[in-house]
Design a protein around this nucleic acid. Structure first.
Lengths: 329, 329
DNA sequence: ACCTATCACTAGAGCGCTCTAGGGCCAGGC
DNA sequence: GCCTGGCCCTAGAGCGCTCTAGTGATAGGT
């Protein structure tokens, strides 16, 4: 259990018969030690099970090279993003500190924790906080918002071209011969406004009448929207705010005996793991999680390095993934 | 963006005209300062926007009061547990450091990160690593495994009585008049063996023939199991390894025209958010996430405090939550 | 008057590391 | 022979905090 004391540089130095500084050099793979000594020090370190203390290291280095990430623990898509963030950060020599938003832990708590940990920059996944609050944070340290549009010059944004995503969805459906296409809305959720707009524009471009149904970002919201559609009359197809919402909708309409894709086409959004499940096989608009995270981390690092950046907002193109919930009419 | 320098204790001290130590006392709410000075120091701190540096604080305090948590970013139930862990840890004055297991970041990486951060103890949610590896970790620091049984005297375990959970599920189904009850197995997943065993025992107790179908912990595994059941003949009801797997199964059997709960009863496991969704309304065996996390954190702290513990393994009773996927036959 | 106790506060060491300066030592150039 | 420039290494300061030991000052007891 709790050993006597965790070994420190000093211990390794004593065992290898060298100075503390030399051990530090070896551990950091810094120049300034002969191969022989290097080997000897490394062996000594291994023997006593030395592990560098990240905190002390950061303290003395002056910088933490730590990227704070706020994510929603219940969002499948955030999981995909976190995966990408770890990868991208490592590539640039940064560490990631995760702080979760949970049902009983709000964004402010999550952010406060990261600030205490001396994160150098913040990456916020689909944050719900007001723009003014984001701006206040951005005054303290670089802030990169992912998957939500923010109109403020101090806040960097990396997001998918959500309007374009809905255009793709509508085009896809129109191409399959659908005319009456409804959109289940995301309300105030991040990205919802853009998707709504893209939907409206695409419908207009085809001379079709738009039909908006209130929705949200959870399965339950989708289920509720499904009930509305069933009660008020089914369209040919429906584009849904996100995959979670779409699966809720799917479940309810199918149980009501509606043939999908025969009678009703359904298009989701995110291409989360959910959509890819073989039995769901949801046609969806894919967000490129790896690209989004790569850009987010790169941007954060650019800000930290004081590099000038051309575009405050980076917009990644979405991609339509046709699966089994859409078919020719 | 990056201000000139983050303010330190020294800065606050200078502004308030007191010593660094006094400021420390005030910030920590420690005894040893007059109310007047306290007020003055606090104001000075506010004025320059001082925030304590968690790292320096931990370094000097000798202990980190940091609990490392390894969780699977894609597991809905882990999300519930993380929520509980934050709460329980805060109550005992500990902080939580999260480290995610993602598709491209394995458990070893996750654990290594936490060790570097000087976590005092590890809480591992449904870890997949071998017992020997867990034991090796436990030799370095207290390790509490949640939601998986581990037979090793150095590793603490907090889990649900999974065999009892399956007994509840079977009793429930038998009580509703079902006789042919199958179990979709979790294979090598944490908890699967106990659930399998509980299922077998309960079936035997009722003189019923068990029927095991290979499954797993994802929706896809459930979908595959459903196809097997459909091909080989439906039972009256089925108990499923977990909720995710159950929803996959549900989706496939329903689309095949099977009436649930009329023709087939389905019982899940975990009572994750998934099961609670109104349109899913899955009958399931609830794991008490709050209790599990409370116990896990308490145990970790006991170990750190060197308190003797009676039971290495803490087993929490499950509870059956009857919803709409089961009904009298 | 003196001694002691208490309170408010400060000096300074130290947590485990990094990093700058600088000290030997040897090879090579003059 | 001496200087120069590497190379390998060490001493020691310092990161921002906590905490122990101790200093004055005031109050209370005799």
């Amino acid at each position: 259990m709790a050993g006597p004391r965790r070994p420190t540089l000093e211990d390794v130095a004593a065992r290898a018969g060298v100075s503390r500084a030399l051990v530090s050099i070896v551990i950091r793979d810094a120049p300034g030690a002969s191969p022989r000594t290097r080997e000897r020090v490394r062996r000594a370190a291994d023997e006593i099970g030395y592990r560098p203390d990240a905190r002390a290291r950061l303290l003395s280095r002056g910088r933490s090279r730590l990227l704070g990430v706020v994510f929603g623990v219940q969002h499948a898509f955030h999981g995909d993003l976190v995966d990408g963030l770890y990868l991208a950060a490592e590539r640039l020599g940064y560490d990631v500190a995760l702080s979760a938003v949970t049902p009983r832990r709000d964004e402010e708590r999550a952010v406060a924790g990261l600030l205490q940990d001396r994160c150098e920059a913040l990456v916020l996944l689909g944050p719900g906080m007001p723009t003014s609050r984001l701006a206040a944070l951005a005054a303290q340290l670089p802030v990169v918002v992912v998957a939500r549009a923010v109109r403020h010059r101090a806040v960097d944004v990396v997001r998918t071209a959500d309007d374009e995503g809905l255009r793709l969805a509508v085009e896809h459906l129109v191409g399959l011969g659908h005319r009456r296409i409804a959109h289940v809305d995301g309300g105030r959720a991040p990205g919802a406004a853009e998707r709504r707009r893209g939907y409206g524009a695409a419908m207009a471009a085809h001379g079709l009448d738009p039909r908006l149904v209130p929705g949200g970002l959870t399965e339950d919201d989708g289920a509720a929207a499904a009930r509305v559609l069933l009660a008020e009359g089914l369209p040919d197809a429906v584009t849904v705010f996100n995959d979670r919402c779409a699966t809720g909708l799917l479940d309810v309409v199918r149980r009501a005996g509606v043939d999908v894709p025969g009678r009703l086409g359904v298009v989701g959004y995110d291409d989360s793991r959910l959509a890819r499940l073989s039995h769901v096989a949801l046609t969806t608009v894919a967000q490129d999680a790896d690209r989004l995270t790569e850009l987010a981390v790169t941007r954060a690092v650019q800000r930290l390095d004081g590099e000038p950046v051309a575009e405050r907002e980076l917009v990644v193109a979405p991609r339509l993934v046709a699966r089994s919930t859409t078919a020719p009419r």
